[in-house]
Design a protein around this nucleic acid. Structure first.
Length: 272
DNA sequence: CTGAGCTCCTGGGAGC
DNA sequence: TGCTCCCAGGAGCTCA
């Protein structure tokens, strides 16, 4: 469930306890996540983590014993705990360090993912990272590149924004929020957006994601930052979850519709 | 290639 | 109280 801000907040949370530390133990619950754990995962034991990184919604741990890729799926979150803290039903994966600390993955729906890549493998050119679009907060995501990637696409802009080939890290919540901020209707065919509208949308995405990271991520139900603190961005959501309430901009009523089996919230009156 | 629909999985809440 | 149904923030797959 976590979107990019939640993942980035999590990355920042675990970085201090993992960077330049050694992995002294690995635990898995035995239940498979979205895919089975890599057969080479045990090789990661003894690894010294050199970098705690992120690409899209994937957290990457680089080390001398290869790279570990983690995805939180829809309900996953990482916690920093004292090693030996009693595990609950949905605690499925854990990395332990000699300092007596562990980073634990709790994932109710098990849509998460943990993969290991042996040393020498360039993770960024492997599945599932290989074909990802630009990072929303980087310069490679601009009004021009956005418009280019929407060219010829008749699908609704809301669904296009959630396509990782267009831009990564924009999930269901931030798709609605950024379209509202840009005053663009979620129903518009993606290819119909003008450069001016792409400019507004691009700016909205960057602003909203940055602000959300600053505030510690959004909390709907499942997310809490790696240090256990809840995110505060939920208070900043203008339209998501506000069906029937007053539009903060034009005071008309906000609507909820379904696009591609996912809820979209918007204002019919001021998003065109 | 695009887009629509389905799938993995569990739990919470609504409604009867 | 207990049942059934619907819904949930991701993302990869198949099929037309």
């Amino acid at each position: 469930m976590p979107e990019l801000p939640e993942v980035e907040v999590t990355r920042r949370g675990i970085e201090p306890v993992l960077k330049n530390r050694v992995i002294s133990g690995i635990y898995t619950s035995g239940l498979k996540l979205r895919e089975p754990y890599s057969p080479t995962l045990p090789q990661f034991e003894g690894a010294r983590i050199s970098e705690v990184s992120r690409r899209a919604k994937y957290i990457l741990l680089y080390s001398d014993k290869g790279t570990l890729l983690m995805h939180l799926g829809m309900t996953g979150h990482l916690q920093i705990l004292k090693t030996g803290t009693e595990r609950g039903k949905h605690d499925h994966f854990e990395l332990q360090t000699p300092e007596g600390v562990c980073v634990r993955l709790n994932d109710i729906r098990r849509f998460g993912l943990v993969l290991h890549y042996p040393p020498g493998v360039d993770v960024l050119s492997c599945e599932p990272l290989r074909d990802l679009g630009p990072e929303p907060l980087s310069d490679s995501f601009s009004p021009e590149t956005l418009q280019l990637s929407l060219q010829g696409r008749k699908v609704a802009i809301k669904q296009a924004l959630m396509d990782a080939k267009v831009v990564v890290g924009v999930g269901n919540i931030y798709a609605s929020e950024s379209l509202f901020a840009a005053a663009v209707s979620p129903l518009r065919p993606a290819c119909s957006l003008s450069l001016e509208e792409c400019r507004a949308l691009c700016r909205a995405i960057k602003e909203i994601l940055s602000l959300s990271i600053e505030r510690g991520g959004t909390t709907i139900r499942d997310f809490s930052g790696a240090d256990g603190h809840l995110g505060y961005f939920v208070n900043e959501l203008k339209v998501y979850g506000h069906e029937g309430e007053e539009c903060p901009r034009c005071h008309s009523h906000l609507r909820k519709i379904v696009q591609g089996q996912r809820s979209t919230y918007y204002c019919e009156h001021c998003q065109h």
